[in-house]
């Protein structure tokens, strides 16, 4: 952690406000898992102790959109459920991020049919896409780290 390394013998460090807030935010990701399909099993596998997303500060899922920072959209989104997803997203307080988990949420996947939304980015903005059917846990962790990277780098709205 770059901030810790900068601490000298005097016991203090200097940083930029944006960087400090980014550091705090990226390690306190409270997720809202919007789980609709089989990808949910892989999400659970990643969240549990074998792969342990708590190492990244993302170990506390909140089942209220009001209390969460990152919307994990996990599984196929049909046109019928799409207004619900949009509403959940609207209920989240800023700052907020969205992760598209699995190929169905990214593009619709092989459900190129009347029932399925062809990528959730047609409804809500997406920050990180994790493809795969379902994605391996390593893949998910990679996506999570990319999200952390994005949170760290961005301009922090306070």
């Amino acid at each position: 952690m770059e901030m810790m390394n900068e601490m000298g013998e005097a016991g203090f460090s200097t940083t930029k406000l944006d960087q400090a807030i980014g550091w705090a935010r990226k390690f306190s990701i409270f997720q809202y898992p919007f789980v609709t399909a089989c990808c949910g099993m892989e999400y659970m596998a990643t969240a549990c102790s074998h792969y342990d997303v708590d190492r990244f500060g993302a170990g506390l899922p909140r089942f209220s959109p009001r209390q969460s920072d990152v919307l994990f959209v996990v599984g196929t989104i049909s046109h019928k459920i799409a207004p619900v997803l949009k509403r959940i997203y609207d209920q989240m307080a800023d700052p907020k991020w969205v992760v598209a988990f699995g190929v169905c949420t990214c593009t619709g996947g092989f459900y190129d049919n009347y029932a399925t939304v062809q990528g959730i980015d047609t409804i809500i903005p997406v920050d990180v896409y994790i493809p795969g059917c379902p994605p391996r846990p390593e893949n998910v962790l990679d996506g999570l780290m990319k999200l952390q990277d994005k949170i760290q780098r961005q301009k922090q709205e306070v």
Partner: peptide
């Protein structure tokens, strides 16, 4: 009725979005 064979393959009727 989407499983009728004359339902257009690419016809979408989204509630929200494009």
């Amino acid at each position: 009725h989407p499983l009728r064979k004359d339902y257009p393959y690419s016809k979408r009727q989204p509630l929200i979005g494009p």
